[in-house]
Design a protein around this nucleic acid. Structure first.
Length: 1013
RNA sequence: GCGGGGGUUGCCGAGUUGGUCAAAGGCGCGGGAUUUAGGGUCCCGUCCCGUAGGGGUUCGUGGGUUCGAAUCCCACCCCCCGCACCA
């Protein structure tokens, strides 16, 4: 398998050897001492499978930082635990137990679990046991510097005690409250449906439709809308004529709604009693009253009613009611009054309207026409539209032709197609929104015309039109005078209006999926269910958020633009249901029916690592973990004596635990994948500020991206997947580590590519053979080239350190490995004989990334652990600019000569270093000291204007040469003559006289004239 | 829709305090060397033109600022991620 040359490098043997040495010497077992401490944590992995390349990335970054900090004099604590609470492990056990073929396939092929082992994992406990063992093996095989004495699992009894304590604390502070919330629910299973139990509809989210009640003389028509503000512009309702509807009692009110809707409402805390099943078409032409507009227009309506009453002998008692209403100034109060008398209002107005409407068909009495027009504002007909989906919300929708292209076009169609409804459908759109910076009169009408929409069958165009109108109105729309909130931005209106309508008793909320269908694994269509009496973490509490913002302000977030992201997420975070019926975990201590949800039990567990050491050593048992103990250790509440008494531990031990905690806390860095930003990391912040005093709040968070496999997304549950174990087995720990660190920076995603991994492996082999060839050799001579190499090493050290301080592992590996490698190559090519002069530094520099191979090579000369050596310091005194510039000079000279030789087949190259001319520009440039000022100065001179680039190029060159103490070009060339001749295959002579005048003139400082013949 | 990030040369991916940028590095591809295995290692080349180190055109699109823009400003197009009770 391996080539003959690789025989002397067995990654695995080296790795095993040093892992064993580290373990024996306990060098990663961290105990408090006089050094400054550094507490780094990585979110513990969830163990419903093997650790994979994604974990490998996050953990390797963490380990590289841990090792780097350790080598910088910090006492580093890097612990690890396992997360198993929640439902996925239970689900997995069930699927394994019933030998689900997909599960078996995924776990045998991608998680690399042997079939016979897998089939045994038919209980959650066995799964936890198996995968935690595998995880430990994997983490050890890759050589992380973890303090293994602190490992734990989230179902451990003492851990549950710790969680209970935390929840009591939160409860005391009023941060755990009761409420209800909507969930995706399977009526057949009678359970909330989790993602992996979903057959269809993974992308569906739950949206809340505002339901607005309009009243016929007998029924309520509950219109569902996402844009409640359009209630001010309703001209009619739409129902599907061929749809199945019901008349049902909903919480005691008589509603007309789709059959599906009635079924759905059962799950949304509504009393539903279906009275009869009906067809949509039977209700076409029904008239309904819009109570909102009735209230707002109460002044003008009595007269209209009376006119009609007089002419047609209709009961006008409603006019009296409306007069009463109009006595109120406040519009909301008016509406409330209308709602109080809604029966009278609905009956009176619809009857008046009907009489008037029929009347003017026969006799076009001007007064009556006006009265009807007035009433038409508040009394609207129910009309047919096939586009109404009875499976979406209530199946009853408002028509707002001024702002909804669908509504406008459907009305136009109706006028064309239906004789009976022609007249009633002939309405004027009511405009209620003004769009800033646009000149629309009636947006829906104009946009529909612009797009040339002919009829309601042109769905594509209609969707486009709807999108255009909606987008403009949402962003730039302002409500007009004929609404309840003149001047309010459309984007702000929804919440206010929804709340007002509900308070008035004419609004409601209908939860619905954004996408359909949503189907459970069992084949049943899911519904939205409102779960009652649920425990919530009260994240929306302003004081709590304020503290999180405070923490965020002083925290370091890497990369820094995530700080903004965090702020937004904190802003957006609402209360979170923290209790479950099902799953592994800890019960809510005061309400044992409920389990604490698994993200909610993983917020401050870093503190638990302190206890875990004592627990694993057998010094603390679950029964010792009492609230008093934790109060004392974590919060300095009470005293050691009390804590000791309550816990049954000795005072000495209690004090030792407290000392440990005081030493290690707070967390200095939490390094995590970016998938945890919107959940775990947020909760991590919230719970820290809730439980701990300021001085124990975390210091920094770092976020990294995902890992894909040959360009494909990895998936734990579907594959493809590369396990950590396999990556290490196939490539070795150091190769895996270096690759993953180098593959991407920060939150950008890394791609695992076999080809690139192999290429990196060969680079590492090359590194190793360089070490073999030179490391133990004595330095023969020390000259210009050695100074150059050492100088370059300083740059690498500086760059690597800077990168590591910012957690830029890609940049760090690039600087510490690839760039140094290139320098060493150049050095050897130039004839250098002593690359080993930088090898001690190089090994140390690389040791956080490829610790095993570095440890191995280091021990060829040393007895200490390189893992505990001091990380190289940048030493400015070793920087040799002269040497560096000279090498640059040679490189550029070589390129120049090569360029010339491309065109001339020559045997000899004559060189003439720059003459003492063209100095004017150079002098100005040198005086200015930098490009910017030099150019500013030079550009004052007419001669240089217009040739900026040429001049600037020249300036750059000049500046470069003059920044360093003069390079003696002749001398440098002479010293490297042999090298140049060897590389170029020609004779190299420095002789101005051989270079023709024309060429000589082209020479510049740092760029000699070249003549080949 | 809201919020965050991003569009660079065949690919991945650096580079964004404007000027050392035709643009690092890796991969791929082409050529060469190596006691020459189509493997490994090393070297060279890899936007276009060019029989002298040069010139031309590039960094999502279109404008603008500037002596000078991948880098700054404006508009537009496109892509990725999160939007929850799920780890």
């Amino acid at each position: 398998m391996q080539n003959t040359q690789d025989h002397d490098l067995d990654f695995h043997a080296i790795e095993r050897k040093w892992q064993e040495e580290w373990r024996k010497s306990k060098i990663f077992e961290a105990e408090p001492d006089e050094r400054p401490k550094f507490f780094i944590t990585i979110p513990y992995p969830y163990l419903n499978g093997n650790l994979h390349a994604g974990h490998t990335r996050t953990l390797t970054i963490g380990d590289a930082v841990a090792r780097y900090k350790r080598m910088n004099g910090y006492n580093v604590l890097f612990p690890m635990g396992y997360h198993v609470t929640g439902t996925p492990i239970i689900g997995l056990a069930e699927r394994i137990a019933k030998k689900d073929p997909d599960t078996i396939k995924v776990y045998t092929t991608y998680h690399d679990v042997p079939l016979e082992d897998l089939l045994k994992l038919d209980t959650p406990e066995k799964i936890v046991e198996y995968f935690s063992r595998e995880a430990t093996k994997a983490l050890k095989s890759i050589g992380y510097s973890i303090d293994w004495r602190r490992v734990f699992t989230t179902t451990d009894e003492p851990y549950q005690k710790f969680i209970e304590w935390q929840y009591w604390k939160l409860k005391e502070k009023g941060l755990v409250v009761k409420g209800s919330h909507p969930v995706r629910y399977c009526p057949h299973d009678e359970n909330p449906v989790e993602d992996h139990d979903l057959m269809k509809g993974e992308n569906a989210t739950i949206v809340d439709f505002t339901v607005i009640k309009l009243y016929s003389s007998e029924l309520i028509f509950p219109c569902a809308t996402l844009r409640p503000e359009t209630i001010f512009g309703v001209t009619n309702l739409w129902i599907n004529p061929s749809g199945n509807y019901v008349v049902a009692e909903i919480n005691g009110e008589k509603w007309f709604l789709s059959k599906e809707a009635a079924e759905k409402l059962v799950h949304q805390e509504k009393e539903v009693k279906v009275l009869k099943e009906v067809k949509g078409e039977d209700y076409i032409g029904e008239l309904v009253v819009n109570p909102v507009l009735v209230g707002m227009l109460a002044d003008e309506l009595p007269k209209a009613v009376e006119v009609i009453g007089e002419k047609f002998g209709v009961d006008t008692s409603v006019a009296e009611v409306l007069k009463e209403v109009s006595k109120h100034e406040d519009r909301l109060k008016r509406i409330r009054k209308v709602v109080e008398k809604i029966d009278t209002v609905a009956k009176g107005l619809t009857e008046a309207f009907r009489a008037g409407f029929e009347g003017i068909k026969k006799n076009k009495d001007k007064e009556v026409i006006e009265a009807v027009e007035k009433l038409r504002m508040v009394v609207v007909p129910v009309l047919p539209a096939e586009f109404v989906d009875t499976d979406n919300a209530t199946g009853v929708v408002m028509s707002v032709p001024a702002h909804a292209p669908y509504d406008y076009i459907a009305l136009e169609d109706l006028k064309k197609e239906s004789k009976e409804l022609k007249e009633i459908a002939d309405v004027k759109p009511i405009v209620l929104i003004r769009i800033e910076g646009e000149s629309y009169e009636v947006p829906a009408v104009e946009v529909s015309k612009e797009l040339g929409i002919e009829n309601q069958k042109e769905e594509e165009k209609l969707d486009k039109a709807t999108k255009i109108v909606y987008r403009k109105e949402f962003h730039k729309g302002v409500l007009l005078e004929n609404t309840l909130y003149p001047g309010l931005a459309v984007s702000k209106v929804k919440d206010v209006l929804q709340k007002d309508l509900i308070e008035l008793g004419i609004g409601d909320v209908f939860y619905e999926f954004s996408e359909k269908p949503v189907v459970c694994r069992c084949g049943t269509k899911c519904v939205v269910k409102l779960v009652r009496d649920q425990w919530f973490l009260n994240y929306s509490k302003p004081e709590w958020k304020a503290k999180v913002f405070e923490l965020l302000d002083r925290m370091r977030i890497i990369p820094d633009y995530y700080k903004e992201e965090f702020r937004n997420k904190v802003e957006w975070l609402k209360d979170k249901a923290c209790a479950r019926r099902k799953g592994l975990g800890t019960r809510i201590p005061w309400d044992k029916e409920w389990l604490i949800e698994s993200l909610s039990d993983s917020t401050i567990y870093m503190a638990y690592y302190i206890l875990a050491k004592f627990i694993n050593a057998g010094k603390i048992k679950a029964e010792n973990v009492t609230p008093d103990l934790l109060d004392y250790v974590f919060l300095s509440i009470g005293d050691a004596k009390k804590a000791a008494e309550s816990s049954g531990l000795s005072i000495k031990l209690v004090e030792e635990i407290k000392r440990d905690f005081d030493y290690w806390y707070p967390v200095d860095l939490r390094s995590s994948g970016k998938d945890l930003v919107a959940n775990h990391l947020l909760f991590f912040l919230f719970h820290h500020v809730a439980i701990f005093p300021e001085e124990l709040w975390p210091k920094a968070i770092a976020v990294n991206g995902y890992v894909s496999l040959e360009g494909k997304k990895m998936s734990k549950s579907k594959g493809p997947l590369l396990t950590m174990k396999r990556a290490v087995a196939e490539n070795g720990a150091d190769v895996t580590r270096m690759y993953i660190l180098y593959a991407a920076e920060y939150d950008s995603d890394a791609d695992w590519r076999k080809k690139d991994v192999e290429s990196l492996a060969s680079h590492l082999k090359r590194f190793y053979s360089l070490m073999k060839d030179y490391y133990t050799k004595d330095v023969e001579e020390f000259k210009h080239l050695e100074r150059w190499l050492i100088s370059r090493m300083q740059k690498a050290i500086k760059e690597t350190r800077e990168a590591m301080e910012n957690l830029q592992t890609r940049r760090a590996v690039n600087a510490a490995f690839f760039e140094v490698m290139n320098d060493v190559k150049w050095y050897l090519r130039r004839g250098g004989k002593n690359p080993q002069i930088i090898f001690d530094d190089w090994l140390k520099l690389l040791s956080p990334f490829a610790p095993h191979i570095c440890e191995e090579v280091w021990h060829w000369k040393h007895d200490s652990f390189i893992s505990l050596e001091k990380y190289p310091e940048y030493d400015e005194s070793k920087v040799d600019e002269v040497a560096e510039v000279a090498e640059e000079y040679i490189k550029s000279l070589m390129n120049d000569i090569k360029e010339v030789l491309k065109f001339v087949d020559a045997k000899t190259v004559y060189l003439a270093p720059a003459e003492e001319w063209k100095k004017e520009v150079a002098r100005v440039a040198i005086k200015a000291g930098n490009v910017r000022d030099a150019m500013k100065e030079l550009m004052k001179d007419e001669r240089w204007r217009g040739m900026g680039k040429e001049v600037s190029n020249f300036v750059k060159r000049v500046l470069k040469e003059s920044e360093i103490v003069e390079v003696d070009e002749k001398k440098v060339i002479e010293e490297s003559k042999e090298f140049l001749e060897r590389e170029l295959g020609v004779k190299v002579v420095v002789d101005e006289s051989k270079v023709p005048e024309s060429k000589r003139k082209a020479a510049m400082p740092g760029k000699p004239a070249v003549y080949a013949e």
